[in-house]
Computed example of a mutant assay.
Amino acid sequence: MKTTKLFLMMSMVALFFTSCYTETVIVEDTIVDPVPQVTLAHLLSDYELWYVDVNKSNSNGEIPFMQIAFTLSFENGTLYANNNLVGIGDQGYGLGIDVGYYHTSGFDLNITHDLDGFNRFEVTQLAYNKLELYNRTTGVYFTLIGAQRDTFDYNALFYDNIHYFVQEYVTWEKTFTSQQGAINEFDNENFVAFLPGGGDGNFQSSQDNNGTNPNNIYYDYTGIYNVDDVNNNRYLKFLTLDYDFLGNEYFEMSVIDDRTISLYHPNSRTTYEFTGRGYIQFKNQDGFEKGEERGKLRLSKEQIEKQMVKISTL
């Protein structure tokens, strides 16, 4: 009997303590480190050069300074541009010339250009080094690709924009003819000038003596030229010159430096070198007021092909 009572008392005590037990759970606040917000000003300054890729831009409208520049740079509120291929990498320590100023507000980029005035762009980051600048007023957007000066592919820049490069000199003078190669009619041509436009009359050719002042050259012939890509070789182009009396002349064109091009003539196996004469520098406000060239609006390859009179068979 005593054993039974003792067992019942112990059971009741155990039940009492079990029913009175409450589990207490303490939830501590989770501390999350704030994610740093990248500002547009910081993003623009991350890269020394921003290449204006007209082939990936929508230029149905017109904002001239954006379509003239090959690269833009944003440095402490000052906007710089490389409007010429000749001398790029050297002028302004690689940044080009001062063309205006800018400031940012959120992801709006406000640019006041010396000639074109004020434009606001809504900026979208497409990739770590790729931006889209959208101008709501004109409906135009531009794609910018960021790079550093010491890693920028200047060779690709020249070949991708070779139409504009050959137009940055008043004329090109033949300064070398290889010993190898058969005699041909083009041996007599000493100057070739490349002019803007895709229709008739966008190249000129002269047989004047070497050393003639570019301003005094008499051009014997005016015709059409085409530049075509070479498959699987970004650093070579096909050049076709339309001569009525010679027929079409075909060349493999390569850039030696920013004032020398090489033309290889497959039919005769002759190599020619031409040196640029009469450099045309595309200035900003000061030069423009002095009557110097403003610069040509760059077009995408698709737009150039639409305007071009096709003479090559490539």
Rank of each mutant, 00 (worst) to 15 (best):
A81E: 13
E302V: 15
Q37Y: 08
Y272L: 00
F74E: 09
N129V: 00
N58L: 01
G94W: 05
R294I: 02
V99W: 08
T270S: 10
F194R: 01
D257I: 00
N58F: 12
I311N: 01
L79G: 05
M12Y: 11
V99A: 12
Q307S: 06
K237V: 03
N84M: 09
V192C: 05
Q91V: 15
L144P: 00
Y159E: 02
K5I: 13
F158W: 12
G89Q: 05
G87K: 00
G198I: 01
Y164S: 00
Y47V: 05
Y141L: 02
K2R: 14
Y219M: 04
T271W: 03
K130V: 07
F251R: 11
S59E: 06
Y102W: 10
M253R: 06
D114W: 03
P266C: 14
T177F: 06
Q303I: 01
V52A: 09
K301A: 09
D200I: 13
C20I: 12
F176N: 12
N129H: 01
S59G: 08
Q281D: 12
D53N: 15
E302G: 07
S19Y: 12
R269M: 13
H103M: 12
E23S: 04
R149L: 15
R269V: 03
D46G: 00
D150Q: 13
Y169N: 04
G61A: 12
I68L: 07
G276T: 00
T39I: 00
H265V: 03
N226R: 06
D229E: 07
D244H: 12
F16V: 15
F17V: 14
V32M: 11
S105R: 11
T212W: 07
D258M: 08
Q148R: 02
G100H: 13
L15V: 15
T22D: 01
D29I: 04
E62L: 14
F152L: 10
H265M: 07
G61D: 09
L15I: 15
H42M: 11
G276K: 02
W172A: 03
T124Y: 05
G287M: 09
S300F: 12
E75A: 14
W50E: 06
F282W: 11
N190P: 05
L115M: 14
H265T: 00
H163T: 10
Y225L: 13
